[in-house]
Computed example of a mutant assay.
Amino acid sequence: MLPLAGVTVVSLEHAVALPFATRHLAELGARVIKVERPGQGDFARDYDRAVRGGMSAHFSWLNRSKESLTLDLKVPRARAVLDRLIERADVVAQNLGPGAAARLGLDAATLVARRPELVAVDLSGYGPSGPYRGRKAYDMLVQAEAGLIAVTGTPDHPAKAGFAAGDVAAGSYVIQGVLSALLRRERSGAGAVLEIAMLDALTEWMGYPVQTVEHTGVELARSGIGHQSIAPYEAFRTADGDDVLIGVQNDGEWARLARGPLSRPELADDPDFATNQARARNRERTDAVVAAVVATLGTAELEAGLAAAGVAYARVSTVAGVLAHPQLAARGRWVEVGSPVGPVRQTRPVVEFPGEDARLGPVPALGEHTDRILGELGLDPTEIADLRAVGAI
């Protein structure tokens, strides 16, 4: 049995951060009921049309194994339905716009005051207090506020991360918070109010830059693909035209690199290169020495030499290269799941339990499960038809 079997999560969610969290809760066995607006649904459904048949790649990634229920919460009868659903839930989560949940009486504090055993989550950009509490927050904006953009890119050109780092950071803490709260409830019976902010989450992930600037007062220089304080830790182009990242973590690895693949044993003891502090201080010279040798070697020859020397390396993959990655293929990390446009290839759940079948439910169509869920709440077909007629569902 999956660990969250029997747990019901009701999620008023859109975009990336909260759907990321609830997808993982679903894969751990929870029943996740995704509440969407009639007609339009989660606006991530329209972020792109990358998946065949016109489905959004964002939505496909974030919403498998869930049930879609459409409710227009501006219609009182729809709100009454939601209240009945919340009465049966173990977890209620929302990432509505700033202040929207509180105006509807759906913020975590209000819900837990009504049902003390409930685990309720408010996920926001900047948190429920402070001068930024009313600001809208999207991933790139939070990357900017958290300093991630300041340390990403080249010296001349800052850049955002190439994926939704702020959303994924916040979603990860929602998962952690919900699992912890459910464990505590199992022991004490008490629910929890969880208020999680994207800025808080991403600032935590910025720990190394934050600690460095805190204690030195010096802003970190952007270093492209390289590392700000370790050298060599950079991608170098082989004679075959591949970019191979070589990561030297200590002086012993440098000595093995110098005596092995570089065929420059004198560099192992050269005071300009023998220690990481010296190599980082002479970064341009260090990288130039490595680049000159790597450029004469084929990729397979270089990788064999690095492996023999015990030096860490990785080929810089394209996204297409990841789709064909031999390690992922060998471990069976790709599966097909159903969707409104047919089977789509996705990654397996990261956390799986031996002897348990992975939870790999389909990506839902908008409102696909509305009638069934309303029937479970005791509404008969005539009542459901009436709700549909007044635009409540």
Score class of each variant (00 low, 15 high):
269 D>Q: 11
269 D>Y: 06
269 D>H: 08
270 D>G: 02
270 D>V: 05
271 P>S: 04
274 A>Y: 08
274 A>E: 08
275 T>A: 11
275 T>W: 01
276 N>D: 12
277 Q>R: 14
277 Q>N: 13
278 A>N: 11
279 R>P: 10
280 A>I: 06
280 A>L: 12
280 A>R: 13
280 A>Y: 09
283 R>Q: 09
284 E>I: 07
284 E>N: 03
285 R>C: 09
286 T>L: 07
286 T>G: 11
286 T>F: 11
287 D>Q: 14
287 D>N: 15
288 A>E: 10
289 V>C: 11
290 V>L: 05
290 V>W: 12
291 A>F: 08
292 A>Q: 10
294 V>Y: 02
294 V>K: 00
295 A>F: 09
295 A>Y: 03
296 T>A: 07
298 G>M: 14
298 G>A: 11
298 G>Q: 12
298 G>C: 13
299 T>M: 06
299 T>W: 09
300 A>W: 13
301 E>V: 15
302 L>A: 00
302 L>D: 00
303 E>I: 06
303 E>A: 10
303 E>W: 04
306 L>Y: 10
306 L>G: 14
307 A>Q: 13
308 A>H: 08
308 A>P: 10
310 G>H: 05
310 G>L: 03
311 V>K: 10
311 V>H: 14
312 A>Q: 15
312 A>D: 15
313 Y>Q: 01
313 Y>K: 01
314 A>Q: 07
316 V>G: 08
320 A>K: 08
321 G>S: 13
321 G>I: 12
322 V>A: 14
323 L>W: 13
323 L>F: 15
323 L>M: 11
324 A>N: 14
324 A>V: 10
325 H>C: 02
325 H>A: 00
326 P>S: 07
327 Q>I: 04
330 A>Q: 06
331 R>F: 11
331 R>N: 07
332 G>R: 01
332 G>I: 12
332 G>L: 06
333 R>V: 01
333 R>M: 04
333 R>F: 05
334 W>C: 00
334 W>K: 00
334 W>R: 01
336 E>Q: 12
337 V>Q: 05
338 G>N: 05
338 G>A: 02
338 G>D: 06
339 S>D: 07
340 P>H: 13
341 V>M: 14
341 V>S: 15
343 P>Q: 03
343 P>K: 01
344 V>M: 05
345 R>Y: 14
345 R>N: 10
346 Q>D: 08
346 Q>C: 09
346 Q>S: 05
347 T>W: 13
347 T>V: 14
348 R>P: 01
348 R>M: 03
348 R>A: 00
349 P>D: 03
350 V>P: 08
353 F>E: 00
353 F>N: 00
355 G>S: 04
355 G>D: 03
356 E>K: 05
356 E>F: 10
356 E>D: 04
357 D>I: 03
358 A>L: 00
358 A>V: 01
358 A>S: 02
359 R>E: 13
361 G>S: 04
361 G>F: 07
361 G>C: 03
361 G>W: 05
361 G>K: 00
362 P>E: 02
363 V>F: 07
363 V>H: 10
364 P>Q: 04
364 P>W: 10
365 A>I: 14
365 A>G: 15
366 L>R: 07
367 G>N: 07
368 E>V: 11
369 H>I: 12
370 T>G: 02
